[in-house]
Design a protein around this nucleic acid. Structure first.
Lengths: 163, 163
DNA sequence: TGACAATATTACGTATACATATTATATGTA
DNA sequence: TACATATAATATGTATACGTAATATTGTCA
């Protein structure tokens, strides 16, 4: 159990990359005049955009009235208590709104505003540009493997947390 | 610029994996009686442990008196303003101490306590176990590629932030 | 030496996320 | 129907990280 170099440690690498990418993305968002889209919003916006206009992409979760706050949290991997503040901030920034569910008064449905829908194209372009820059010097095959491994880690980490 | 599935998005994957691994690691730390080691400490502990007893591994940064708070922050990828609170908490948990630098009174040197040195073996074992579990179903070759890509992303993200 | 620039650290406010407790509502069962 | 239980969301306090400003110390140059 030798003291390995931090750069050989999965946890170290993932947390530093997460911080770096968030910092870079934030900078690009501000530069392009989209400072009302905080990096943390993107984890839920990606899911909300899949439901944009169609109400089918989210499967059993998608509804005309939006999506349940709790279900959105499950999709995005966030605790309910984290969702409250996040949706508060997204409402304040005009990207989403809360709506009461007439069938279950406990439920809060989350809907995109027109602003939240319109900003999609621009944000996806920024994300795409950043990703291309990041992977510029990395062979496509390795990029694919890395993304695939990250997907698998996400699944296995979720499973391991239950025990 | 289609709305891709969140799981195909680099930023989404990295941030979710970071959250998942942090949650899993925290659980294992608490279970094993090491709740005084918070996940956030590990990013700097890994660097401090490299200097344990030898004072050479950190190159020009390593000194008998510890390592400068700012230099430690640079190694761990944290802003100076983030370091203050982090070291506060590590001192409170008995893992590190601040020491004045007699040669430059602006400087605060960070030193591991005996407790911080002793806990190394146990923490590295936990990290190793978690990593093995995470990668259990992933071919070694893909694991190596993924780690290598993460290292490269860290470098390119740092470079891109300057522009 | 005295003024000014550079460096190191901290202070303060904000963003992000969690755990736990609480409130409101819904559901199942006696 | 009444009560126990489950579910949805929020409130509160803490951990983590950043940006900006303030403070203290040191270095530099005229």
């Amino acid at each position: 159990m030798e003291s390995q170099h931090p750069n050989d440690c999965l946890y170290y690498l993932v947390t530093r990359v997460s911080l770096s990418l968030t910092s870079l993305l934030k900078k690009r968002l501000v530069e392009s005049g989209c400072d009302f889209v905080k990096p943390a919003y993107i984890g839920v916006l990606l899911w909300l955009w899949m439901d944009d206009g169609m109400g089918t992409m989210l499967g059993k979760f998608g509804k005309d009235e939006g999506i349940k706050l709790n279900d959105l949290g499950k999709l995005a991997g966030l605790e309910p208590s984290s969702m409250t503040g996040l949706i508060d901030r997204m409402e304040k920034d005009g990207l989403a709104v809360r709506a009461n569910d007439p069938k279950d008064r406990r439920v809060t449905n989350i809907q995109l505003t027109q602003k939240g829908i319109n900003v999609r194209k621009h944000i996806l372009e920024i994300m795409d540009t950043v990703t291309k820059e990041i992977f510029a010097t990395i062979p496509k095959k390795q990029e694919d493997i890395a993304l695939d491994v990250l997907k698998k880690i996400l699944i296995s980490a979720s499973n391991l947390e239950k025990f």
